[in-house]
């Protein structure tokens, strides 16, 4: 995928008036004023999650060469300022889209999903209907987290008392490895959800409207996987701290 202007936002070049200018003019090469674009649109890409990272890097380097403020230093104040703003947005966009988790979180934000808000409204719904709230974290994972926390507490206490129980340290270390594997596996699970999201994007305007539940299902699933992954990541961090203390 070559660097190209975002079609929807294209304005005529302020300098030469030719069409096809997004970040810079394709005809005369002058830097254009920054447009209010999301990071996907900044690269002229649809909001799809399974992206070609090599192509992203290539577009990034191409654009950053053309937009670099040093290269536009002689162009005059206004154009240099634009190039500074464009470069800074380019860096943010590249960093965010390159990382699979950040990319997913960014998409959720763009699509208006507030993760914490969801948990609160689920509680309110449970209260209103008298139904049990569906927990975000599956019960078996919760049990595991609780058990491991009990062991960590024991481990910290022992260390504080200057005692050492190699069997406990070993057990906790083994569980840490299991958690790290789970953490990796959840990334693969996330990538599977990307496929269904991307399929929805590919449906195009007319069909997207009738397939709203597909969209919602994919977004919910992404939140679910990210939540579980965060949980495990925090736990791994706590385990590491307890083992090293």
């Amino acid at each position: 995928m070559a660097a190209k202007p975002a079609p929807a936002e294209t304005q005529p070049c302020w300098s030469c008036g030719s069409m096809g200018a997004a970040h810079f003019c394709e005809a005369c090469g002058r830097v254009q004023p920054p447009a209010a674009l999301d990071y996907f649109a900044f690269f002229g890409w649809p909001r799809k999650l399974n992206i070609d990272v090599a192509a992203l890097d290539k577009d990034f380097y191409q654009l950053s060469r053309k937009l670099h403020p040093d290269l536009n230093a002689r162009a005059g104040g206004q154009e240099q300022e634009w190039s500074l703003e464009q470069s800074s947005m380019l860096n943010d966009a590249h960093r965010t889209l390159k990382d699979p988790v950040q990319r997913t979180q960014y998409l959720l934000k763009l699509e208006g999903v507030e993760v914490e808000e969801q948990s609160k409204s689920a509680t309110e719904q449970a209260r209103a209907t008298g139904q049990m709230k569906k927990q975000i974290v599956p019960p078996d994972l919760l049990e595991e987290v609780f058990e491991l926390n009990l062991q960590l507490e024991e481990l910290r206490l022992q260390k504080k008392m200057g005692e050492d129980d190699p069997a406990l340290s070993e057990e906790v270390g083994r569980r840490k490895l299991e958690l790290e594997e789970k953490h990796e596996a959840l990334l693969e699970e996330l990538k599977k959800v990307w496929a269904s999201w991307d399929a929805w994007i590919d449906r195009g305007d007319g069909e997207q409207a009738v397939a709203q539940d597909e969209r919602k299902h994919a977004l919910d699933k992404m939140v679910d996987v990210l939540n579980r992954r965060n949980y495990i990541r925090n736990l791994v961090r706590d385990v590491s701290a307890a083992l090293e203390s």
Partner: peptide, 13 residues
């Protein structure tokens, strides 16, 4: 009741 908050990693029984 065993519940957890993924935002912060808390777990409550």
């Amino acid at each position: 009741g065993l519940v957890g908050a993924p935002e912060c990693g808390d777990v409550m029984k």
